[in-house]
Simulated assay, not measured.
Amino acid sequence: MTDSVKPRAVRAADKRRRLTAAAARVLHEQGVERTTLADIARVADVPVGNVYYYFKTKDELVRAALSEHSAYLDELTGRLDRLPDPMDRLKGLIEAWVGQREIAARYGCPTGTLAVELDKRTDGILDAEAGAVIQLLLDWVGYQFRVLGLPDPDGLAVTLVAGYQGMSLLANALRDPDIMTSQGARLVDWLDSLR
């Protein structure tokens, strides 16, 4: 079905989806302050005037990007939840992080870098929403440790996620994806030591 014969609602939903995905990508690559609505429209292949139809402000696009990060996390953890062993799920999470090493080395963690940038703003609203996405990851990781019967599962979750945030920050600062590889291996060794 060509775009011209798709029902209006389908075309609108497709444009909104493209804009949301583009917002997540461009905000990650350029940051909130350097990104314009025109940048997002260009990546989404949507006329810039149409952006205002779907998102009235840049903050609405940031919120949409955070929603995209949350959806990606849901998809990733949903796939990992199919693994029967919680330890394998945690190792699969680390493997997914390491698999994004080139992107992390260039731009950092998508949600983490956005959370840090939003924290610099004075309104305190969007940074809390970025924190909520990170909290979803912490909750999922903590649950895995809880199922394993390990003491202080929430503390272990913070340690694992902090390890990821640290390795992605260093990989980005030093533009060295190998940091993700070596530190990912250390995180796996750490997990093995917990049994």
Rank of each mutant, 00 (worst) to 15 (best):
C109T: 00
K120E: 10
K120W: 01
K91S: 06
L114Y: 01
D119Q: 10
R121F: 13
E102P: 02
L90Y: 03
A105F: 10
R89L: 06
D119Y: 11
C109M: 06
I103H: 12
E117S: 02
I103D: 13
E102H: 12
D119E: 11
K120P: 00
Y107L: 05
A104K: 09
T113R: 15
E117Y: 03
E95D: 15
A105N: 06
L90M: 14
D88N: 12
R121W: 05
R106T: 07
T111C: 14
G99A: 03
R121A: 07
R106N: 03
G99K: 09
G108P: 04
P110G: 08
C109G: 07
Q100L: 14
I94G: 07
E95T: 15
Y107K: 05
Q100N: 13
D88Y: 02
G99Y: 04
M87G: 07
A105Y: 07
P110L: 02
R121T: 01
E95L: 10
A105H: 09
Q100I: 00
R101V: 05
R89D: 01
K120L: 14
R89M: 02
I103N: 08
Y107I: 02
K91I: 08
P110H: 05
A115Q: 10
R121V: 01
G99D: 01
D119C: 09
R101H: 12
G112N: 06
I103T: 06
C109F: 07
D88S: 14
R106S: 11
A104F: 15
G92K: 11
I103Y: 08
M87L: 15
M87C: 03
G112F: 08
P110N: 02
C109W: 06
L90T: 03
I103G: 12
R106C: 03
T111K: 01
I103F: 12
E117I: 00
K120A: 13
V98I: 12
K120V: 02
L118F: 05
R121S: 03
K91A: 08
V98H: 10
R101Y: 09
P110I: 00
C109A: 07
G112P: 04
Q100T: 03
Y107D: 02
D119L: 10
L90E: 00
A105T: 06
E95S: 15
R101C: 09
A115K: 13
T113Q: 11
Y107R: 06
G99P: 08
L90H: 07
Y107F: 15
V98S: 11
L118S: 07
T113V: 09
L114K: 01
G108M: 02
A96C: 06
V98K: 12
D119I: 00
T111P: 04
R89C: 04
D88G: 13
V116D: 12
W97P: 00
D119A: 15
E117C: 02
R106H: 06
A105C: 08
A105S: 14
A115H: 13
A115N: 04
D119G: 15
L118Y: 03
K120Q: 11
R89G: 03
A115W: 05
Q100P: 00
L114I: 00
T113E: 10
A104C: 10
G108W: 11
